[in-house]
């Protein structure tokens, strides 16, 4: 029995960090909006955090589509994305199982594939939020340079939705970071996103159906791209 199982191919890891790093920096620079002492820090009239936020945001928006096309030319990334967004009956049963357990009732866990329903809900919400944030952010980015393109009331409405979605995304990110880096039960998963492999024992506890498939694949000598 192997000690480790291949979890994420390079293409999936690149996709994850390509989104995660800019989004994290955008969230942090964006949050300075609620920190008066930080938001007006400026170099010759150019407010530092606002500029960083707008430049990185517009760069991210422009670079994202070609990057996605390149990454999704890889089968492993397509497959992981499909697994993450596909909803099965077991996902509903898993959520019900967690709810019953939280209420102190007895429940038998359904089998869990590569991603559990919690991860899928998080992914769907975060993806939606990020798409809307990019769309509204582009309008605000253009308005940052030129105030004559959009009507001021349109800008205000867009600004509002940008704020709403960022405040929805914030707890998702915080929860994701907690599960990936701090929570002792789940933090093994971070290794999957860095080295690409996870401990077999962890996988069998948390993703039993997937672990079985991965074990089988590793026995056949197949890498993550061919599973």
């Amino acid at each position: 029995m192997p000690e480790f199982l291949d979890r994420f191919a390079p293409s999936t890891r690149v996709l994850h960090w390509l989104v995660a790093i800019p989004v994290l920096i955008l969230m942090l620079t964006g949050l300075t909006n609620f920190w008066p002492e930080a938001k007006t820090l400026h170099l010759g009239g150019a407010r530092i955090f606002a500029w960083l936020h707008v430049l990185l945001g517009l760069g991210f928006a422009v670079a994202l589509l070609p990057s996605l096309l390149a990454i999704f030319s890889r089968r492993a990334a397509r497959r992981d994305a499909r697994e993450l967004l596909l909803v099965r009956l077991d996902d509903y049963l898993w959520l019900q199982h967690r709810a019953l357990r939280a209420a102190g009732l007895r429940s038998i866990a359904p089998r869990v594939g590569k991603f559990n329903a919690g991860q899928k809900v998080n992914a769907a919400l975060a993806t939606t939020a990020i798409i809307v944030l990019i769309g509204t952010g582009v309008v605000l980015g253009v308005n940052f340079w030129n105030k004559n393109v959009f009507d001021v009331d349109l800008v205000a409405a867009v600004f509002r939705w940008h704020t709403v979605l960022s405040l929805l995304l914030l707890p998702l990110i915080v929860g994701h970071l907690y599960m990936a880096a701090l929570n002792p039960e789940t933090r093994e998963s971070l290794r999957g996103m860095t080295s690409g492999r996870v401990r077999r024992a962890w996988a069998e506890r948390h993703h039993d159906a997937w672990a079985e498939r991965a074990r089988e694949a590793s026995r056949r000598g197949a890498g993550p791209d061919r599973r």
């Binding site: 357990r101 009732l105 869990v112 948390h206």
Partner: peptide, 25 residues
């Protein structure tokens, strides 16, 4: 995320303590 370890048989058959837990929750 996973199952909590299965409770030992004695505990699993203790409905009072389970109700208490559920009320706290």
């Amino acid at each position: 995320m996973s199952d909590e370890p299965r409770p030992p048989p004695g505990e699993s058959g203790a409905p009072r303590s389970r109700r208490l837990l559920s009320r706290a929750r």
